[in-house]
Write a protein that binds this DNA or RNA. Structure first.
Length: 159
DNA sequence: GCCAACGTTGGC
DNA sequence: GCCAACGTTGGC
């Protein structure tokens, strides 16, 4: 028995930087979700994510933007090493190695969306009107998704 | 490339 | 603690 119900998330990545295909091509189809420097996004990863949670992998700053694939959380939160490495572009001098400010999870790719679900498609579906990603000015890079929304998006993707 | 929306910073 | 200035996000 799972300790709690599976939760669902949407995580944004710029495909020019790291695409869903990059994730599927990575060793073990896994990656550290590093570089998040927003407290709300960090709190979701640190406090609310568990192994097995579902992840909508969203391409931002893309043509078109949208959900490119499905992933899952494979390691619970731990300190983001890029925040503690002075040579890393995501280095944060204010993060204390004894009490790291930034946390991340590992995710693994599960399956590509047979049809990319574009932002336009998401906005056009009345069932998804409450989703954070379709709200105007929504910039949060890690967002909770309901189980119903997850099912709807999977269906729209052709799964 | 533009710019609206948003989060963070820092002076006071 | 307020809030103006600034930097970033991300759709268009």
């Amino acid at each position: 028995m799972p300790r709690r119900a599976t939760r669902y998330w949407l995580m944004k990545s710029e495909p020019d930087v790291f695409s869903f295909d990059d994730l599927m091509a990575a060793k073990g189809r896994r990656t550290m979700w590093d570089g998040v420097r927003n407290y709300q996004a960090r709190n979701f990863m640190r406090d609310d994510m568990a192994v097995g949670d579902g992840v909508l992998f969203y391409h931002s700053n893309a043509k078109p933007p949208g959900v490119a694939g499905f992933a899952e959380v494979v390691r619970e939160a731990y300190p983001d090493p890029t925040a503690l490495d002075p040579k890393d572009p995501h280095f944060d001098p204010k993060s204390d190695p004894e009490d790291p400010r930034w946390m991340l999870v590992d995710i693994a790719g599960v399956e590509s969306a047979p049809n990319l679900v574009s932002l336009e498609d998401l906005k056009a579906n009345p069932k998804l009107s409450e989703m954070a990603v379709v709200q105007r000015g929504s910039r949060l890079s890690v967002q909770p998704v309901t189980a119903d929304e997850w099912k709807v998006v999977r269906k729209m993707a052709g799964l």
